[in-house]
């Protein structure tokens, strides 16, 4: 028998349950480093902006893969949809201000995620792979065929992006682009943190762990999956919109299978299920890509493939144990 009366215990529980949600020193250090890079690496802002966008995209995948166990071969569908939405908003002056356009593109991608989630929820991993891949390919085909609207294979040309909040115009050094992308990433990460540490987040983890039992304690499994899939789609759409806004261009390859597959690699490098995996993975992936692309620009996909095979053969479990050991030293988790 425990000695503590329920009241005391209850207060201890609140303490304990809330603990996961607290900001850790290493997290704060991560953001300090990110902010410092704005001032210390002015020459690298273009690639840093790319990293921030990829990180946001990977964060989006982590929400469904790491927290809900949904494997997607076509997460680029939402990225691309957001990218084209932002491009079209700007090109046709529907929404000029970038932050508003970003939000609108996110909502549009969320709507797409909501609708397709009902297809994704049906059936096994196999049907999920088929549907996610199929939806991305279908959108690519739509963008390709309706070229009077999208520019088809030439991409969406003539996208002029207005200054952010009416006062910060995008510049050639990528300075505004990086600060903008980093700010969006930070805000959405804080939101995602809230989400995964909430009762909703806990219930998602339970669905991933054992959907049968989750439904047996009254959790509406499908509704939760629809919700997180929709949120993840919004995140991906915002990442895509950021790409369009920071490059003033978007083309069919925003939907490509390679983009979805690379994203899986990004997330696996960093680790799933703790939000920062996508961010860390994005940094490593981009640096690696940069380095490999200077060595073998044409065949770098080979090395990506080799890396994927090696990761699986070594074992993600073993890798994450190494990472855990490393994290144990710095207490990230």
């Amino acid at each position: 028998m425990s000695a503590s009366p329920p009241g005391v215990l209850a207060a201890a529980l609140a303490e304990r349950l809330g603990q996961r949600a607290r900001w850790r020193p290493i997290e704060i250090a991560f953001w300090v480093a990110a902010v410092a890079s704005v001032f210390l690496l002015p020459g690298k802002h273009i690639i840093l902006a790319e990293i921030a966008i990829l990180a946001l995209f990977a964060l989006s995948l982590d929400l469904i893969l790491g927290y809900a166990g949904i494997i997607s071969l076509g997460h680029a569908a939402f990225f691309g949809f957001g990218a084209y939405c932002a491009g079209l908003f700007a090109k046709h002056h529907l929404i000029n201000e970038p932050v508003l356009a970003l939000g609108a593109a996110g909502l549009a991608a969320a709507a797409l995620g909501f609708v397709t989630s009902f297809l994704v929820l049906r059936g096994s991993d196999l049907t999920r792979l088929m549907v996610t891949l199929g939806v991305a390919l279908m959108l690519r085909e739509i963008a390709n065929r309706f070229d009077e609207l999208t520019g088809g294979a030439d991409g969406l040309q003539g996208v002029g992006i207005a200054p952010v909040l009416g006062s910060f115009a995008f510049d050639i050094t990528g300075h505004v682009a990086y600060v903008y992308a980093l700010a969006v990433l930070a805000i959405l990460l804080v939101l995602a943190r809230r989400l995964v540490h909430s009762p909703f987040g806990l219930s998602l983890r339970s669905v991933k762990g054992n959907a049968l039992r989750a439904s047996a304690i009254g959790i509406p499994v499908n509704a939760r999956l629809v919700a997180i899939y929709t949120v993840a789609a919004a995140y991906a759409g915002i990442a895509g919109a950021l790409l369009t806004q920071t490059t003033a261009f978007c083309s069919l390859d925003v939907f490509s299978f390679e983009r979805s597959a690379d994203l899986l690699l990004v997330l696996i490098i960093g680790g799933t299920g703790y939000l920062y995996g996508g961010l860390i993975g994005a940094v490593i992936f981009k640096l690696m890509q940069d380095w490999l692309a200077t060595m073998t620009p044409q065949y770098w996909q080979f090395w990506i493939g080799l890396l994927l095979v090696a990761i699986v053969l070594v074992g993600r479990e073993r890798m994450s144990r190494w990472l855990d050991a490393a994290r144990g030293l710095v207490r990230l988790r």
């Binding site: 690699l265 493939g305 994927l308 095979v309």
Partner: peptide
């Protein structure tokens, strides 16, 4: 399944590039 997916995508990429 996630491992199988990653592993076989890796093989695809290698075969395509090779």
């Amino acid at each position: 399944h996630l491992d199988q997916v990653l592993f076989t995508i890796g093989l695809v990429f290698m075969s395509v590039a090779a």
